[in-house]
Simulated scan of single mutants.
Amino acid sequence: MDISDLRTEYTLEGLRREQLAPDPFQQFELWFQQACASDLPEPNAMNLATVSITGMPSQRIVLLKYFDRQGLVFFTNYKSRKAQEIKANPQVSLLFFWVALERQVQISGKAVKISTAESLNYFATRPRGSQLGAWCSQQSSVISSRQMLEIKFDEIKRKFRERKIPLPSAWGGYRVVPQSFEFWQGRPNRLHDRFLYSYIDAESTWKIQRLAP
């Protein structure tokens, strides 16, 4: 199978320094709002990269559930592979790819657990089926069959029949506290526009630099 000719020429628009907000959170919010307004499928889907204690990287798609100036929040099982890797090395990377807008945003930072109260507030908003799923799945563990998973789901469903479903002790959120943002806009001839925001701790400010494509 020859895929050497699979390519797309990015021609929608460019990105100039003077267009950028001085604060990367403002710039991210603008681009995120535009992604949502464009009716993209799951604009909050982001690739989360972690590294194991042995240095082996792994990636998976998770969903951004909310963000503010403190960071970007996603939820998971605290016994999952990603959680164990975050425990060993909290430095992570997030990547949003909005292909219809010819844009990427890469965010690097430290993942920290949010409070139980904050996790509970979000858990209460989940559909009941998703709440049950959080109880029945020991995420990343080996299971013998799909049937066993469904049996476990039915057991949990009966257990909490006509009851409010409590927050599982092994389930909750992480907040990624950014140390850098990179905004990428596709351009013709692979001469893409890339701007890096780096946090300067000593000055409590963000430095903006253009990167070569």
Score class of each variant (00 low, 15 high):
133 G>C: 08
182 E>S: 03
105 V>Y: 07
58 S>T: 07
101 L>A: 01
106 Q>Y: 01
128 R>V: 09
198 S>W: 05
53 I>R: 15
58 S>F: 06
28 F>Q: 12
9 E>D: 12
17 R>I: 15
66 Y>N: 13
180 S>G: 03
91 Q>C: 01
114 I>Q: 02
133 G>Y: 05
91 Q>R: 02
58 S>D: 15
145 S>V: 09
131 Q>Y: 04
48 L>T: 05
199 Y>D: 01
192 H>T: 08
120 L>Q: 15
155 E>Q: 09
121 N>A: 14
191 L>A: 12
77 N>C: 09
76 T>N: 08
49 A>I: 06
15 L>E: 03
139 Q>G: 12
116 T>A: 13
168 P>K: 02
110 K>T: 10
90 P>T: 04
54 T>S: 14
164 K>P: 11
151 I>Q: 15
184 W>A: 10
43 P>W: 08
14 G>T: 02
95 L>T: 02
99 V>T: 11
28 F>I: 05
176 V>Y: 05
211 L>Y: 08
98 W>M: 05
14 G>P: 03
137 S>M: 08
175 R>C: 04
171 W>Y: 13
40 L>N: 01
109 G>T: 00
152 K>M: 00
125 T>A: 14
52 S>G: 11
18 E>N: 12
27 Q>D: 08
93 S>R: 07
148 M>C: 14
149 L>R: 02
133 G>I: 11
3 I>G: 08
202 A>E: 14
135 W>I: 09
69 R>L: 09
20 L>I: 03
14 G>I: 01
164 K>Q: 14
179 Q>C: 05
122 Y>Q: 07
107 I>G: 02
55 G>T: 06
96 F>P: 12
19 Q>G: 13
50 T>Y: 00
21 A>T: 05
17 R>C: 14
198 S>F: 03
183 F>W: 06
26 Q>C: 14
22 P>H: 09
160 F>W: 10
35 A>E: 10
18 E>R: 07
17 R>G: 13
172 G>C: 00
47 N>I: 13
58 S>R: 09
23 D>M: 11
199 Y>L: 04
199 Y>G: 01
17 R>Q: 15
104 Q>C: 01
207 K>T: 09
154 D>I: 05
87 K>M: 11
173 G>R: 04
203 E>Y: 07
208 I>F: 01
14 G>F: 08
161 R>P: 06
100 A>C: 13
91 Q>G: 08
64 L>S: 06
182 E>P: 00
11 T>Q: 14
113 K>H: 14
151 I>S: 09
80 S>I: 13
184 W>N: 03
191 L>T: 03
88 A>L: 06
163 R>W: 14
44 N>I: 10
117 A>T: 14
10 Y>T: 00
174 Y>V: 05
68 D>K: 03
139 Q>F: 15
17 R>P: 02
62 V>L: 12
121 N>S: 15
75 F>W: 13
128 R>K: 14
22 P>D: 11
191 L>N: 10
213 P>Y: 12
75 F>H: 07
205 T>R: 09
52 S>I: 06
109 G>K: 00
81 R>Y: 06
29 E>V: 03
27 Q>N: 03
160 F>N: 04
19 Q>C: 11
111 A>R: 06
139 Q>T: 15
155 E>D: 15
48 L>E: 00
158 R>M: 14
50 T>C: 02
213 P>W: 10
92 V>Q: 01
153 F>E: 13
181 F>W: 04
185 Q>K: 05
29 E>I: 00
54 T>D: 15
176 V>N: 04
